[in-house]
Design a protein around this nucleic acid. Structure first.
Lengths: 235, 235
DNA sequence: CGGCAGTTTGATGTTACTCAATTTAAGTGG
DNA sequence: CCACTTAAATTGAGTAACATCAAACTGCCG
């Protein structure tokens, strides 16, 4: 993933916005109405599994997450969305999303017409490659997540999630290597790692007691970077 | 996924082969050398994580699986490959695969030049959409797998895997609703569901005792289709 | 017949879940 | 600023699910 700021999202790192927004790509059908910004309050749902939608979304500010909800109410978080993230590469060609999306904090999102995005991608000679890269990286992330859920201990899964998030934050902001904004409830972490929030609490307490890291007050403090990296990159 | 047989693989259901093999798509650079068939013995590894390769593969006959191997030797199977399956949509643009692939049974594979596949896709006006559909369906499958590993019990995960496989087999062959070829060792099932082979053995024995299904001798026999479907589609 | 890979079974250990009570933190309105 | 409310985090006790270790068993093939 190369740094690639775009007009929609100064933090975009996917290259996707740049391709879609290229001026020459396509003539707008009705002014600039094919895309608009929206603000969504913390906790609100933005995308509903199976509700068909004519839009593609990019998160501009705040934190969100993509998830699948079980019949019995449990949910699995598939990934967290940070500024610049396309909700999912699949959304560009999927009429009905197979996932839902919620805002963690208040967020700004950029809502674009799927048809328009498709034709811009098709018009751009590098569009196929750009799109393919986004897909490949999403598939790779998911493959790694599957491996983590299937094979790692609770502690390793949590450390892995936090490590990954710190890396993604670092890629978007001035690098901070010890202290990161992290507006997640323990329930979010539980839903992302396949654990219960009670167990997440115990593990986080243990990591705090062992002076590895401290997650509280919406911030993650890395106390022992070596141990943190070791736990988080276990495989 | 629409039925879409192709010259390489009579059972291909992805539409991918059709797009790539279109006669008009592209002139061959050196005869037909951009693709060739290979035979691989049961248990042999076909793709090695991180070894860069100039090829894209499609499975033509037999069973294989895509996986990621842990440092400590444990492995997570990401999906099983059936005749007609592209190893991964990501492979078309990824220089180095982030996964490995092994043959379960003896397999025939079609090995294609990645460059040639890319230019054929780019040349085909429907190429972007074809490729995107393959990606979207792979992402959806992975999202569902993540949810299964994160949220389902051992029994449900196993039933889900077997149910999915029966559906995929049915899509490729004359429909058989009670008896399916299933050349998997219990270790494969364990590696695909994040369990140990010992536990898989216990669960399969229980399912056999409860007269839900019987997996043995390389075949799956569905005894109670209702209960099987209920367990396997739990979410 | 012996050997090997795969499966089954039992006994035991560990990890993570459930339920429920308690503490802490974060608002909110007076 | 303080009482009140509510959501989130913590803690303890008991339990269920799954892992580990090891031995026995099965089928298959040379």
């Amino acid at each position: 993933m190369a740094e690639n700021p775009c007009a929609i999202c100064p933090y975009s790192v996917s290259g996707f916005c740049a391709a879609v927004l290229a001026e020459s790509a396509h003539s707008q059908p009705h002014g600039a109405s094919w895309r608009q910004h929206r603000v969504v309050a913390a906790g609100r749902q933005v995308v509903n599994r199976n509700d068909d939608s004519k839009h593609v979304y990019v998160l501009c500010t705040g934190w969100g997450f993509r998830f699948i909800q079980s019949n019995d109410g449990r949910r699995q978080i598939l990934n967290f969305l940070l500024p610049g993230d396309l909700f999912s590469a699949a959304s560009i060609f999927e009429e009905r999303p197979h996932y839902s999306v919620k805002a963690v904090t208040a967020v700004q999102i950029s809502e674009m017409s799927r048809n328009e995005v498709q034709s811009r991608l098709a018009a751009d000679p590098a569009g196929l490659r750009t799109f393919a890269m986004a897909c490949a990286s999403e598939i790779e992330d998911l493959d790694e997540l599957v491996t983590a859920l299937g094979r790692l201990s609770a502690e390793e899964r949590i450390a892995r999630l936090l490590l990954q998030l710190t890396k993604r934050i670092s890629a978007r902001n001035v690098v901070r290597d010890r202290y990161f904004p992290m507006p997640l409830r323990q329930q979010h972490i539980a839903d992302a790692t396949g654990l219960t929030s009670v167990h997440v609490s115990r593990i986080l307490s243990a990591l705090r007691a062992r002076e590895v890291l401290d997650l509280s007050n919406g911030h993650l403090r890395i106390i022992d970077p070596i141990e943190f990296a070791r736990l988080g990159s276990a495989r």
